[in-house]
């Protein structure tokens, strides 16, 4: 698949807020799926590659990855107002729902029973996160060394269960060096 920058349309301020409101509201099982879906596919605020690079930064910074991306996307398009609008939009609906759940918990001292339907939703949400990662990887046509780094990160987090900060500290320097080498910025003599 190609990656046309044609058709990319920056959001207005209300669009930014409403877009993030939707991401927060629909983000069952995590907002990563909906964030990419809305920003890249539905509203076309930026290209797959631009978005992936923001996710990369959001991942190495502390805090919620997609929350960090919301701040960065908001700032890119509308400065401080944009960062605040995107952040407020993303947290508004989930916070309201959580307050409701907290009140229920306080009143009845028990969680609402998890219906079998919700367990099916959890399985589907897991598949959606896996599918989003696969879709990004295939659309970005990562070079082979980047695929290697990707698989190492997956292995370290999902199988070895290493702490994420450790994985980032261990993999970021070699991965950045490989990307600079791929771009011809370091180790020219090698190529």
């Amino acid at each position: 698949m190609t990656e046309p920058s044609a058709g990319i349309r920056p959001p207005t301020r209300p669009e930014l807020f409403l877009g993030y409101l939707k991401i927060g509201l629909l983000g069952f099982g995590g907002v990563a799926v909906w964030s990419r879906r809305l920003v890249v596919e539905e509203r076309r605020w930026m290209t797959e590659r631009d978005y992936a690079e923001l996710i990369g930064l959001g991942q190495i910074l502390p805090g919620p990855n997609i929350g960090n991306v919301a701040v960065m996307i908001g700032r890119r398009f509308h400065g401080l107002a944009g960062a605040l609008l995107a952040t407020a939009g993303m947290y508004a609906a989930p916070l309201c729902i959580l307050i409701g759940l907290c009140l229920l918990y306080e009143r009845y001292g028990d969680l609402p029973h998890v219906a079998p339907a919700m367990q099916g939703v959890a399985a589907a949400a897991a598949g959606m996160v896996i599918g989003t990662a696969l879709k990004m990887a295939s659309r970005l046509k990562l070079p082979s060394e980047a695929v290697g780094v990707l698989l190492l990160a997956t292995l370290a987090a999902a199988w070895l269960r290493l702490p994420l900060p450790l994985i980032v500290i261990g993999l970021a320097p070699p991965s950045i060096a490989l990307a600079l080498w791929r771009a011809g910025l370091i180790g020219r003599g090698v190529r």
Partner: peptide, 20 residues
């Protein structure tokens, strides 16, 4: 920045696998 992308996608994949 491109060097951080495979790490981010790899960790997203891992999160999905743990959820699965």
């Amino acid at each position: 920045q491109a060097g951080l992308v495979p790490i981010a996608i790899g960790l997203m994949l891992a999160a999905g696998l743990v959820m699965a």
